[in-house]
């Protein structure tokens, strides 16, 4: 059975976090700070020519918001966990302006890591899922991942 709260036990459903609206100014500020040269995030004419209704919200901005949500959940728990892994698959490009919600659920708890499943969806009920991802957290006050052999 899932439960909602600040704990990170297996099955815990974490409080969803809403962000936005992400407008053109937000997208442009992100793209400039990230040095993202992709014209889909900077040039409205290019975005529209590619079939989007506005500047495309960078997937990395969505993953960055996932990181913020995770940081908030970790801080609420107060156990000093580290983020060992953060990943996302960007399923449906979102065009600005759009509001999004980041949700999280604890899907695995092991000695070395706690695994959160993350989803990002637009506020519109009819909008498709924008991003699914994972965050791996260290145990409380735990260490880092070991680099891959030969990495």
């Amino acid at each position: 059975m899932s439960r909602l709260g600040s704990g990170l036990g297996r099955g815990a459903v974490l409080p969803a976090v809403a962000y936005g609206p992400i407008d053109e100014a937000w997208v442009r500020a992100y793209a400039a700070a990230a040095l993202d040269p992709n014209p889909l995030h900077r040039d409205l004419a290019v975005a529209q020519a590619a079939g989007f209704g506005g500047l495309v919200v960078p997937g990395m901005l969505l993953l960055g918001l996932c990181g913020r949500a995770v940081a908030g959940w970790v801080a609420a728990e107060g156990a000093g966990r580290r983020v060992l892994h953060l990943s996302g698959r960007f399923l449906a490009p979102l065009a600005a302006p759009v509001s999004v919600e980041v949700s999280g659920r604890v899907v695995a708890v092991a000695a070395a890591r706690t695994v959160l499943r993350l989803t990002v969806k637009a506020a519109s009920a009819s909008a498709p899922l924008a991003c699914v991802g994972e965050a791996w957290l260290s145990p409380p006050s735990g260490g880092w991942l070991s680099p891959s052999p030969g990495g």
Partner: peptide
């Protein structure tokens, strides 16, 4: 700091996604 605020206006700290900036 600019990247943290680009991710979320008012944001601070080192964003987890900072390495993506190096691909520029």
């Amino acid at each position: 700091a600019a990247l943290a605020q680009g991710v979320l206006p008012g944001g601070s700290g080192v964003p987890d996604i900072l390495p993506i900036r190096f691909l520029a």
